[in-house]
Write a protein that binds this DNA or RNA. Sequence first.
RNA 1: GCAGGGGUAGCGAAGUUCGGUCAAACGCACAGGACUUAAGAUCCUGGGGCCUCGUGCCUUCGUGGGUUCAAAUCCCUCCCCCUGCACCA
Length: 949
Amino acid sequence: MDGKETGSALIGQILARERKWQGEWAKARLFEADPDAREKFFCTFPYPYVNGLPHVGHLFTIMRVEALARYRRLQGKNVLFPQAWHATGSPIATAARRVAEGDEKQIKILKDMGVTDAEIGDFARPEHWIAYFVPRYKEDLSAVGLSIDWRREFHTTSLNPHYDAFIRWQFAILKEKGYVQQGEHPVVWCPKDNAPVGDHDRKEGEGETPKEFLWGKFRLRGSDLILMAGTTRPDAFLGQTNMWVDPKATYAIVAVGDEKWVVGKKAIAKILEQHAQAEQIGEIPASELVGKWVKGPAVDYEICVVPARFIDASVGSGIVYSALEDPVDLLEIRTLQSDPARIAEHGLDPEIVARLRPIPIIEVPGMGADLGDDIMREYGISSYKDRKKVEEAKGELNRRVFRKGVMRGNCGKYAGMPVPDAQREIIKDTIAAGDAAMFYELTGRVVCRCQTESIVKVVSDQWFLTYSDPEWKRQARDALAQVALYPEKVRAQFDHVLGWLGDWACTREYGLGTRLPWDERWLIESLSDSTVYMAYYTIAHRIKEIPPASLTREFFDYVFLGKGEKPALLGGADAGALREEFGYWYPLDFRNSGKDLVQNHLSFMLFNHCAIFPKAQWPRGIGVNGWVTVNGQKMSKSLGNVIPVRALLAQFGADATRITILNGGEGLDDPNWDSDFARAIAGKLDMLIRQAGDAAQATGGPTPMDAWLRSRTHAIMRDVTAAMERTDFRTAIQLALFEYSAAMRWYAQRTLGGPDARLLRDALRAQLTMLSPFVPHACEEAWRALGEGGFASAARWPESDASLIDDDEDLAEELVREVAESLRKGAQKGRIAKATLYLAADWKREAYARFDDIAQRTRNPDEISRTLALTPLGGYGDELGKLVRYLAKGRTPGRVLSADEERSRLESAKEYLSHEAGGAAIEIRAAGEGDSKKADAGLPGRPAIEIEQ
RNA sequence: GCAGGGGUAGCGAAGUUCGGUCAAACGCACAGGACUUAAGAUCCUGGGGCCUCGUGCCUUCGUGGGUUCAAAUCCCUCCCCCUGCACCA
């Protein structure tokens, strides 16, 4: 039999064991949570999108919920851990359509997930994706041994009329409170399909989005024409000096509302797509504009229209305004100013042209008033022909202005504002004043699957959740203030997000989901139908028995808000029981997700709870974690290292998988899946079970080491408990598994195999209980081997008894450990006949104590020496100096044991020490006893050792 | 670019809040030893350099500076990695 087969036999055994315990738990209904007299704990993992199977990334996030759920259960809480499935949105619908179209790529994706040829056809129907993936997803999570109450399982969308009714209720309330409003919204649009082009529908240009451009209105003197100039720098309106036009172009005159806009001809289509009615009513050559005066936004003076070689009438609006700030503009105006022939040719007034120069409006620290000149000097630019340098300089200047710029005193109400703030304000003000309009450009080329190039279209009847609403934001901040965050560090990010979140387009035209109750043309978008559904879990198992026809506004109002009379239900269910159950479980105590959801889902959850529920029902805890890496590598489809959960289970079993993933990291760091660790841990778990069996057979009575083991294990229990409270599961595992086991080993060594049987079993029981959130199957097995009844998963979390924790015990064992180590080393060099231990002199102990005292205020070695020299210890001169130098290196001693304490500990450890020294005789002497040169060399906690061979 | 989080030994990862007990916990991997017929498991030991082997010296915590008697830890510069920047799950 080769190694491989042995391995697979072993894993078979492990899997069988795990299945057995999962069966036992189910039989005992251990995880089915119903309201009772106990304190409750309600925790969730966001329902996954069911277009695939769980992988190691999902596993980490859900395991954090699982570990906490099991921990709280052991603490005696009534824990609800439910799970449901998300099908809302377009990916499944799109993928199903592709299957219907026979798309090879899509079919291959399904086959890679184990779908057979015969089954493929079924996936043309979106609902089949739910029917297929939900049971398999559940199978995987069950095989992990998660303590989920599966009775409450459900899936989203209109395919589940109960949930559908719930979401319609939620939106009815949001609408009523004014949090859903219609407005304009730019979307990437296919002119041929006449439909939005989502990322999934693109042949080219994934991730490209519409970018804002403000078009400023520059009104022509003595005319009703308005020159439109696009800009990304509206702050520069305040320093505007002139207009640029393309001298060779002929511009279009377009009627927009009751205004006549002058734009490049290509811009007409853009106006049509992004604004209402527009009609070309004429045209005007650039030559008729050059030399004319216009009045632009945000200032009260007029500026002159000037030709520029770099302007292309087919880009943007075709017209640009200038503040003569950046190198491109500056170089252009200077070449014009030094070219009288060209000035004449365009019929410009040379004096006016000569007067054109920048108006400093922005202060950038470290730069002079003339930003353009400054940056050109820095880049050593002398001519516009230095194209590359000019572009670089322009970019750098823009960056500096945006990052560090502040509006100068001449900027009126914007004076003193950082540039980004000023931009925001100016956009708002100029649009409000009718002096500007917002337009969009794509950040890059987008091509629809139908081969047509996409454009930006402004949809005017899109529905929004108004997350920009100041009052709503204020409430969300309140909700954030009262929520516990794990880790607390993410609060900064949440703070930022709540401020930054704007209105959210919450409806879609295409996909799966719930129809907007008052405008059935629209589907509710997937991030918006999952914001308060945790409440639905509390009644999910009971609501299934109620006919959908009974799920009215009044029903949900009563159950979730306690409003109105108890409604009578079809089918005889009692709405009062649902109301009670909701009241018992809500609010949510813990929700955990990856850090990517902070900026949408988790923040939305806070907002929507504020909108719908009273403060007492707002979420209490949010956990956030990093992104899993696999054996140190980033996980990605292209690297092919996205490991499905089922593959991990098959290779390592549930327990090893569970503990490995949680041991991979904590906090916001990206956790790492370490296959080597997973392989190694399986053996350790078996050992735990064997140890439990051995402990059950042990018969010994009390030993001198018992106080130490109690102290040590209770200290670890205390620390594990603290780590669990912080959801620092990695720390908890390190302590409960490795530190705790190390303590047990030391105890075994020191008692030379004769442990106190009761203490040993107590200690082991506590360890198994602490480990059961991580490796529950092995713990159950060990639990029974230990002779315990019931389940480790239903045991009582060990409570640390502070009165048993004695730091002196550790100190004393440290001493033994130190001596034993020296003896072992000595014994390696040759047989030891006798070892004599010389304890430290009392003056050294006093020096340690005084050093410790002084170190409270200073660690400066000179100062400490000087202070100590003034005490009676000063008489030890050089020796004292050496000691201080040694201690000042950083070894702050803290407490030291007395000579008597050291002596008695070493006496009681004599047998052990002798054993470690290969049977040598051990003698313990006071400092200076006898005439060995080692006699005075002992230090507190470190006796000098004289070895005779 | 902006916001947030990171960069410590072959690898993973503590330590950074409050500067000094940090050549750096713990684990994995590796090496040596014990046990064993052997392998595995288990247990013990070791892992920057130097030697006078110690209460020794030197060198290290992304880079380069600074503050301090003392910096992985505080301040500044730069480089690199992760997440998000929206209507998408």
